[in-house]
């Protein structure tokens, strides 16, 4: 009897260890790769996460105190925005790109659709300073935070010093965003042996592996590289994507490959939000690719899917939705 109990305990332990990895207090599945973020330079702790969460939801970051990070990155949309194709900033201005979803950021090598930002810490500087988004200056945001009694105690708890600096604000914002880990979808449950795919989902998974996985690589469902996926240039935006960053014409119309997790919550799709529905995206890849000189090599051979196959593929993609992530209370508006 005793042996049986010991065996059972060991079994539970082994199962637990194989599916849960920890990096400075962040829990993620063992089948996830090693994070890109260097946690040793910004060790995660609950006070900094709390501070970052408060900053994330606070419109103090914008020039007229109306727009917070969460205005365009809403928890219920897996931290993206579904009301607008392009981001919506101060004074009802419309930005240049579709606000991307925020999750599993510790694994990303670069940020923004064109990869212009090379580190999660520095990413908030872009929307804060963009005249069509938050329209502020970093210096003025830090000044406003320093004038607030509320933040004085949060900074003290986080940094043993009540003074806000640019570095501290950015590191706290990064910490909250690093906690946004989405790994509780049906796909994850299947991976962990706690659920199984239906026949239709299984068919969809096979189609996914054959047609999509080279760029939208599992288990994060993106390799986080850049691709020209055959979207014709929107002449009203004239957005050439990564070309503007690298100044290399071979990067023309290259945009970062987004993760396919949480797709049902993150419409509209693409860098300019041009597709409202998943079926529009499907039809783009099978029939809508606009041939151009720099089209990614993965798409030069046509993707052929029957309408039944498209439905199966979508059934699989829906297993990547993570309701636990979307409704997780610790990610939502802080109640102090």
């Amino acid at each position: 009897m005793k042996i049986k109990v010991t065996f059972f305990i060991i079994l539970i332990f082994v199962t637990f260890v194989s599916f849960v990895m920890q990096e400075f207090g962040l829990i993620y599945p063992s089948y996830f790769p090693k994070p890109q973020y260097d946690f040793s330079k910004n060790p995660v702790d609950s006070f900094k996460i709390t501070l970052g969460r408060n900053l994330f939801y606070d419109p103090i970051l914008s020039a007229d105190n109306t727009i917070s990070c969460a205005s365009c990155h809403s928890p219920y949309n897996a931290f993206s925005h579904t009301d607008h194709t392009l981001s919506h900033g101060i004074n009802d201005q419309i930005g240049n790109r579709n606000a991307p979803a925020l999750f599993n950021l510790a694994w990303q090598k670069s940020f923004m659709w064109d990869g212009a930002i090379n580190h999660l810490d520095m990413q908030p500087l872009a929307p804060i300073n963009h005249h069509k988004e938050m329209g502020e200056t970093t210096k003025d945001v830090v000044r406003k935070i320093n004038a607030s009694n509320f933040y004085r105690s949060l900074f003290y708890q986080a940094f043993k010093d009540s003074i806000a600096t640019g570095e501290r604000m950015l590191k706290a914002l990064a910490q909250f965003q690093l906690t946004l880990i989405s790994a509780n979808s049906k796909y994850d449950m299947v991976k962990q042996g706690q659920d199984s795919f239906s026949t239709q989902e299984q068919n969809g998974y096979a189609l996914f592996l054959k047609n999509c996985n080279s760029c939208h690589t599992e288990p994060l469902f993106s390799n986080f590289n850049f691709a020209n996926n055959g979207l014709g240039l929107d002449t009203t935006l004239k957005d050439f994507g990564r070309w503007m960053v690298t100044k290399n014409s071979t990067d023309s119309l290259y945009f970062k490959t987004p993760s396919l997790r949480n797709l049902s919550f993150t419409y509209p799709y693409m860098h300019d939000g041009r597709f409202k529905k998943l079926s529009d995206v499907m039809n783009h890849y099978t029939n809508g690719i606009s041939q151009n000189k720099y089209l990614s090599k993965e798409l030069t051979k046509p993707i052929i899917l029957s309408s039944k196959e498209k439905i199966d593929l979508i059934a699989f993609l829906i297993t990547l939705n993570d309701k636990h992530f979307v409704f997780e209370s610790k990610y939502q508006y802080p109640k102090n």
């Binding site: 260097d38 910004n42 212009a116 580190h119 520095m122 970093t138």
Partner: peptide
């Protein structure tokens, strides 16, 4: 230093010596 995230003191982005639209 340019690819290692946020720093303080003379390197703090509030000094206005860090691009915001591109790292």
């Amino acid at each position: 230093t340019n690819v290692s995230g946020a720093f303080g003191g003379d390197l703090d982005p509030t000094n206005g010596m860090y691009w915001t639209w591109q790292s």
